[in-house]
Write a protein that binds this DNA or RNA. Structure first.
Length: 888
RNA sequence: GGGCGAUUAGCUCAGCGGUAGAGCACUGCCUUCACACGGCAGGGGUCACAGGUUCGAUACCUGUAUCGCCCA
């Protein structure tokens, strides 16, 4: 073991090697096996988040991965900044989704869940929940998400259930919750009511069917009605026309006969009718259409329901009874056809409402349900955002939020399923009293009868989710957690649940705690496949995050997501991107491999970065300070993508490409040379700081490297480097920038002249700037450009020009001047183009007069620089031309 | 029908009033003692289109086109 850093058992693979590849699988397994809770810092300012609880039915998908990565970056960053971070994990009981899963499982076992009864079924769901254990939780850990696992909650754990019940009762007592018979969206497959947001719309190719309604007077006149739902004709209770429609003035008040039946219905006038749709005559089916229900109400039409809960036509459907909705539609067309009441049909694109859980087309249905009054809640929720109490990132989501808030309708919260929070309402069979209670009653509170029945329905899953930020912290108890961490600091979520979840948390939070439940809301987009397609099972384009983590490492996967997480834009994730990130992790790893070989154990970190003298050292430190400043700015404004890019660029383009190469020069110096010591310490210091910057995004590789180097525990990530480097080194870093241009100039010539990279070129250094010391420059030029001081002054040679001087290169006989002449011509043209542009601007009086002085000044300085550059290029070109014409 | 977003290099995307950028792909050279999951050098863009504001517009405003999403 010749490397002093590896003289103990903490080496990379515990056998003294620092392999050229980072073994992500091994390191991740090792770190995860410790199952450490992330550290808390009771002395720090609180920073809290609640995780959007994944469904118990869930498996980690791209959306989770993105969501958790962003949160974890925030959590780790805050921890490193000394804050006391609480990030509450948890799982949602996922009412309908979980019920569906268990129903299906039972069906596969040959059991019809309905035969079990509610209690037994619920206990089966609990058993199933136990059987899947911490599946999704383990996958979340796998992603490196540093949640506060000791605070894990479930939306149906006892405490949470108490909170849900408390809210329901409180709303009821306040008159903000009521039971009523209303039109709701009904899923004929899930057999439950749905809220407005649980219905999504899909474009369908339908038909507009024109049907003849004969005049009841027998005069042979007919009204033609256009409908997309001919199967509901048998439930028609009226036809309606717009009162101002000249075509139908004579019809209002008359009666027509309903096709397929013997019923007579009136023709009414209503302003809700759109004269431009179809024939301008609307059939009114109050029991099967939201709009018709309203119109029917205005005209006292009553109701007639021809469909059962499961979408089957019932006994009142006459010729259609017993048929499914779909079959009924076909049959209706046949009957109309044969009755010669079918006028015509035309294709019609319609947006069908479907259940968001099972995609079944929903039915409007009149039924007795529980509703939350939204108007008062919504008003406050609007204010919280418009007054800036809650901030959206990106802020463009405000509009969408207002749009919804402003058009909100009462929220149907009862569900006719078995899995969920049972509604705490009892009705008395004797006196009819309805009791909503915090504790289960034994008898009717009104008449003491024991003939009371509990409402069999459960609550919308989102009802409990709406309590998540405070119920997880102990509400309604006044717990220490609630006092310290509520309101939470940041909520990170996808736009797809803005209405389902975010808006409702705001409403409930304000109503129940009098405070907005969070300060900032970061709304991220969707992860799509590389072609921009949404990842869905049916498309078969779902990429499994776990697979990517296995293949490329979790760090690489997280970095890919972070880099692509531009606010407000969907993410197209391709394997190539993850590969590129993997390469970055490897690059980082190897940079530290180099440091470990170069820097002996026991080397101290820089105690005073401002006192550093070495050209390269000063340069990298000043770049680090700049990067760190921008990085913090990015993190504070939730620009994870920018922060990640800063780390990427600093590491690769500056630290690896330039500093490490330059540091090799200093490291080769005499052991007694103080510059060598300074450089070794700088390497270590910048390395440590770099790990800190990278840690929130790349937790595993940085923790492993920190461990190897004995830096502060990277899971704490409180290396002094990050905190201590707020001072800029005293002097300008410019000398190293000059070196970069010199090196660039030589490298260009080397390429054009086809001189092998390893071949050293003797050269003379000619400097016009007296501030630069050739003695300090040569070692870097030798290392980075492979030029060496020539033993004697060169009279003839090729000029490598840079801004304030040039190198004369002795290329011996290798020279093909024509290529170089052509290159220089191109360069001169490029610089001249720039000069023309900038000086053209400066020559315009208006520009000089109106533009800000600093802009004009900057342009003037730019012209000077460009002129210098041009002169150098011209001198080099002239010389090349000399060689070309005169030989040598 | 209303709203939102997008349109920048072959592809995927940053940038956003003041010399057009990254990753991947492409071309040439290089297995040089951290890294070929690498290095060096390079090619490639009238920043969708048309007006306007401005000393100056890829960026701001208006309109048009195309694409995507949300709501009705």
């Amino acid at each position: 073991m010749d490397d002093p850093l590896f003289d103990d058992t903490t080496s990379a693979d515990d056998s003294g090697n620092f392999p050229p590849r980072f073994d992500s699988a091994r390191v991740e397994a090792q770190i995860l096996s410790r199952r450490e809770a992330p550290p808390r810092n009771p002395g720090g300012t609180p920073f809290s988040m609640v995780v959007p609880p994944p469904n118990i039915t869930g498996r980690l998908h791209m959306g989770h991965a993105l969501n958790l990565t962003i949160q974890d970056v925030a959590a780790r960053y805050r921890r490193m900044a000394g804050q006391d971070v609480l990030w509450v994990p948890g799982v949602d009981h996922a009412g309908i989704a979980a019920q569906n899963v268990v129903e299906k499982k039972l069906r596969e076992e040959g059991i019809d869940f309905k035969t079990l009864g509610q209690e037994e079924f619920v206990s089966r769901v609990w058993a199933w929940k136990e059987s899947i254990g911490s599946g999704i939780g383990d996958q979340i850990r796998r992603l490196g998400a540093s949640l506060s696992w000791d605070h894990e909650r479930f939306t149906m754990d006892p405490g949470f259930s108490r909170a849900v019940r408390e809210v329901f009762v409180r709303l009821y007592e306040d008159g903000a919750l009521y039971r009523a018979e209303r039109m709701i969206h009904w899923c004929p497959r899930c057999l439950t009511a749905l809220s407005d947001v649980e219905v999504t719309h899909v474009d369908r190719e339908g038909q507009l069917v024109y049907v003849r309604y004969p005049d009841a007077g027998g005069a042979g006149e007919i009204l033609v009605v256009a409908t997309t739902r001919p199967e509901t004709i048998v439930a028609d209770l009226a036809l309606a026309v717009h009162p101002d429609d000249p075509r139908y003035q004579g019809w209002v008040g008359r009666s027509v006969r309903v096709p397929m039946t013997d019923r007579l219905i009136p023709v009414v006038a209503d302003t809700a009718v759109d004269p431009a749709f179809g024939t301008g005559v609307l059939k009114i089916t109050p029991s099967h259409s939201m709009v018709d229900f309203e119109i029917g109400g205005r005209h006292g039409l009553g109701t007639l329901s021809v469909m059962d809960a499961d979408g089957t036509m019932n006994a009142l459907a006459g010729a259609l009874s017993g048929l499914s909705r779909e079959k009924a539609r076909e049959r209706a067309l046949e009957v109309l056809e044969s009755d010669e009441l079918l006028d015509r049909r035309e294709p019609y694109a319609l947006a069908a409402g479907v259940c968001y859980r099972c995609q079944t087309e929903v039915e409007p249905r009149l039924s007795l349900q529980w509703f939350v009054k939204m108007a008062p809640l919504a008003a406050r929720a609007r204010l919280a955002v418009s007054e800036g109490e809650i901030r959206f990132f990106p802020s463009s989501w405000q509009k969408t939020y207002y749009e919804w808030i402003d058009n909100i309708r009462d929220w149907c919260v009862s569900r006719q399923i078995w899995w969920g929070h049972r509604i705490p309402a009892w009705s008395c069979n004797d006196c009819g009293h309805l009791a909503v209670l915090r504790e289960d009653p034994a008898v009717c509170p009104a008449c003491q009868s024991s003939a009371i029945v509990r409402d069999p329905d459960v609550l919308d899953t989102w009802f409990s989710s709406a309590l998540w930020p405070f119920a997880t912290l102990g509400w309604p108890e006044e717990t220490p957690d609630l006092a310290r961490f509520y309101p939470t600091s940041l909520l990170v979520t996808g736009f797809d649940i803005l209405f389902f979840w975010v808006a409702r948390m705001i409403m409930m939070g304000l109503y129940l705690t009098d405070r907005a439940p969070f300060r900032d809301v970061y709304i991220h987009a969707l992860v799509r496949d590389e072609f921009g397609q949404k990842m869905t099972k049916s498309r078969g384009n779902v990429v499994d995050p776990l697979e990517l983590m296995d293949r490329f490492g979790t760090d690489a996967f997280r970095l890919s997501l972070a880099l692509l997480a531009t606010p407000g834009r969907d993410i197209r994730l391709s394997i190539e991107r993850v590969e590129a990130s993997r390469n970055f992790v490897s690059k980082l790893w190897n940079a530290f491999r180099f440091i470990s070989r170069t820097v002996p154990g026991g080397t101290p970190l820089l105690s005073d970065p401002g006192a550093v003298r070495g050209i390269a050292n000063r340069w990298i430190l000043s770049e680090l300070v700049r990067t760190e400043r921008d990085y913090r700015e990015a993190m504070e404004s939730y620009r994870v993508d920018e922060a990640a890019l800063l780390v990427y660029r600093f590491t690769w383009s500056l630290f690896c490409d330039w500093y490490l190469e330059a540091a090799k020069t200093d490291a080769d110096r005499d052991p007694q040379d103080p510059l060598r010591q300074e450089t070794l310490s700088t390497l270590l210091t910048v390395g440590a700081a770099l790990l800190d910057l990278a840690h929130p995004i790349l937790p595993f590789v940085t923790e492993e490297l920190s461990r190897i180097f004995g830096f502060d525990n990277a899971s704490v990530g409180s290396s002094p480097a990050l905190l201590g480097l707020s001072i800029l080194p005293g002097e300008s870093p410019e000398p190293f920038e000059r070196i970069r241009t010199m090196v660039g100039s030589v490298r260009q010539i080397r390429t054009v002249m086809k001189i092998p990279p390893t071949q050293e070129i003797p050269a003379d250094l000619v400097l016009s700037d007296p501030g630069l010391s050739p003695e300090a420059l040569w070692p870097f030029l030798r290392r980075l450009a492979r030029v060496v001081p020539s033993s004697s002054p060169l009279l003839k040679g090729l000029r490598a020009p840079f801004r304030d001087g040039h190198l004369v290169l002795d290329l011996g006989d290798l020279v093909d001047f024509t290529q170089e002449a052509a290159r220089l011509d191109r360069e001169v043209a490029r610089v001249e183009g720039k000069i023309a542009e900038v000086s053209g601007r400066l020559s315009r009086e208006e520009f000089v007069r109106k533009a800000p002085p600093e802009v004009v000044e900057k342009d003037r300085a730019l012209v000077v620089t460009l002129e210098e550059e041009k002169e150098g290029l011209l001198a080099a070109r002239d010389q090349v031309r000399d060689f070309l014409s005169g030989g040598r």
